[in-house]
Amino acid sequence: MRTNFLLITALMMLSACSGGKKKEIDTSKKAGKTPVIESADDITAHPGHDVYTLHCLPCHQADGNGVPGMYPTLHDTEWVNGDTETLISIVLHGMDEEIEVNGEVFSMVMAPLPHLTDLEVADVLNYVRKRFGTADGSITPEQVGEVRDEG
């Protein structure tokens, strides 16, 4: 009974998804979010990719779009593109206050990641800024060290 139902469900979903609806929605949701990293190979080859996968992806998700109502997107936001010192500080010290990202309010805590090395923080932020943001230039481990020393 259960197996039949699942099979039917799967078939219906497959046929439903071959129509236009899914693609339409995907396109609209991801419009304007073209990553600067062009190919899948570029993404996985970046030194920040593994750091992202282990420490950021659980909440911000593989596509960087976060979780609606819980964790904010990393795409095209001033938090990612803007002041690097603030960005480094959020990664090192976390965040426990309500913030607005692209018009949506988020209140979940962001865990601090002080156990990441200066190089890992620099790598992952450069990765995030290139893949999801529009920022030029790069963050150096020295900059991370300075923010860490400021406490």
Binding site: M13, N65, G66, P68
Partner: peptide, 10 residues
């Protein structure tokens, strides 16, 4: 409305 949900935002 997705065959598989990889990201909740989808």
């Amino acid at each position: 409305q997705q065959e598989v949900v990889e990201n909740p935002g989808d």
